[in-house]
Every structure is written in structure tokens, then in C-alpha cells.
Design a protein around this nucleic acid. Structure first.
Lengths: 150, 150
DNA sequence: CGCTAACAATTAGTGCACTAACTATTCGGA
DNA sequence: TCCGAATAGTTAGTGCACTAATTGTTAGCG
């Protein structure tokens, strides 16, 4: 087999990691959707709430670093979460540039209902905790390499 | 350790497969971006072209099945590819409902330049073919489970 | 034959994600 | 002290992705 035919094989859609990865991401997010609808959250909003349940308040910049998201992406999302009554948005005293995003009581309370989500999803995705950790580790290695590549 | 504290740990952002998967997908797509810019393609457009390089013409429905995408997502994308001169959009003779998407000469020719992409990306992502196949297999299992879940 | 259901694609509307440009604030050195 | 660079968020613009509603076509059945 020649090098050229190897490279031709490489172009098959089914051989593309980027394709499998994109479809997996979309499919997993779609599988979360019915579960998160019960909480009134989209998947990206759920991730923001997870970050805030770990630490609140946090600035937009800090959230962006935790979530690997641009401030420009978070800005409108946080306004929607504010409209939903889950967070407040207030300038940081002593640094009027920064915006502190803080859980409201309702936002903090939502965590109780979210506690069931990971278990439900593990079951729906037919994963045990071991497979979860393995996949997570693979993804982190890939993220590191991909971010070095940019 | 109680069950409750287990469930609390489960809510940590860093333990979420869905988070790692989303970030990995976005990061890998971002790593493709500078490479695909040379071809004048976005990443989703690149996937459409891969599908068409394997078989052309194909209907919108067939492309949707191959790419796991909704026709409503493909419709505007295909118009952009038509504007770029890479594909044609013509109703299927004998079935005026279906739209045949076919590579133009320029679209077919672009494949030659795309042949280098997979190798370049493997290198940039620091992967060998073995790791690629393993990750691909993991993603496919996950996709199957996630799509069953919906 | 004609009517209805199914089918294929498009449109409308919402939300994410990214880049680039812009505003407001703060910091730091001449 | 003041002025320019750096910082933090927002806005504008493009493209994806999804759901629901719509348009036009085909098929099948009574």
C-alpha cells in the first residue's frame, strides 16, 4: 500500500476523530437535554451553575477560565441566568471593571435538584464510574494537546 | 463516606464527562481552524466536504444521516458551499422533493489539498494512529449509548 | 381518480461560540 | 500627577445547531 492511498484512507469521515468527537459531544448534550429541562437549564447554563455551586461569587473572567469560555460567550448567558433569577450581576467594590456573578437563594437551592443529574446520566449513558474516569482522563489529555496546538 | 457526599462530589465540574467532552470538541475544532482556513472551510463545512468526497451527489437527507445533522442545519451551510463554488444544488430528476448536492470541479479538486490535513492534525494533536483508533472507538461507543438514551 | 398521509427541504426563532471592535476602569512609570 | 498601556466586560457580526412550523411533492389507499 502506498503512502498516497494511506492518506486517502485518512480522509474517510469515519476515521476522523474530530467528527466522532463533535458527534459525541452533540449526542451527549442532547441526552442531557430532557434531564436538564426539569431544572430549566440548557447544557451550557448547567455548566455555569456547576462552576458557581463550587464557588460563588466569581467574576466573568474567572468563570471563563473555569469553563474554557470567552467572556463574550458568557456575557449574554449570564444575563439569561439573571433573568431566570438564578444569579445576580454586580460590579466588584474596589474594581469597577470586574463583574461579580453570585448565586441567588434560588440558584443555590437548585443544586439540591441537580444532585440527581450525574447519576441519572451515568445510567442513561450506560457508563460506570471507572469508564467515566477513563474517558475523562482521555479527554483532558486531548484538550491539553489541542490547546498547545493553537 | 455517605451516599450524599458521593453525589456532591459528582457535581464537581472536573468530574463531568459532558464538560470534558464539550471542551475537547471545541478545542480540537479550534486546533483545526488555522489548517482549514488554508482551504477556505469552517470545520462543519470540512465534514460536509469529507462526506461528499466519499460520495457525490447525495441528497440533503443522506448527508444529514452521514453527518448526524438536521436538514435544517445543513440547508444554510450548503448554500454557503454553493456560494463558495464547491457544490451545486439541484432538484433530483424524478423526485422534485429531494435536492442533490454535487461537487463542482473546484470542490472535487479541493480534495487534493485536503489530503494533508489528517496527518498535520495528528501531529499537532500529538496522536499516533493507534491512539486515534482507540479514541475513535470510545467515541463511537459513547455516541451509540447517548443516541439510545434520547 | 382524488384525498390524505408521508416525505424532503426550507424558514423562523432561540441560544451558543468565536473574532474583532469598543467602552470604561485601573495601573504604572516618566 | 498624568498619560498610555493593560484589563474587564460588552456589543456587533458570522456561523452552527436545534425545534417547530411551513411549503411543496409524492405515494398509497379507498
Amino acid at each position: 500500500m502506498t503512502v498516497d492511498s494511506d492518506r486517502a484512507e485518512d480522509l474517510l469521515l469515519e476515521h476522523q476523530l474530530c467528527f466522532a468527537l463533535s458527534v459525541a459531544s452533540r449526542s451527549v448534550v442532547a441526552a442531557y437535554k430532557p434531564v436538564l429541562e426539569g431544572l430549566g437549564l440548557t447544557h451550557p447554563q448547567y455548566l455555569v451553575m456547576l462552576a458557581l455551586w463550587e464557588q460563588s461569587p466569581r467574576t466573568v473572567k474567572e468563570l471563563g477560565e473555569a469553563l474554557a469560555q470567552e467572556p463574550a460567550t458568557l456575557s449574554p448567558m449570564l444575563k439569561r441566568l439573571e433573568s431566570a433569577g438564578l444569579v445576580t450581576r454586580q460590579r466588584v467594590a474596589g474594581n469597577e471593571r470586574a463583574l461579580a456573578i453570585e448565586l441567588t437563594d434560588a440558584g443555590a437551592a437548585l443544586r439540591e435538584r441537580a444532585l440527581a443529574v450525574p447519576g441519572t446520566m451515568l445510567e442513561r449513558l450506560e457508563l460506570d464510574r471507572g469508564m467515566l474516569q477513563e474517558l475523562n482522563a482521555s479527554m483532558r489529555r486531548l484538550i491539553d494537546a489541542a490547546q498547545r496546538a493553537v
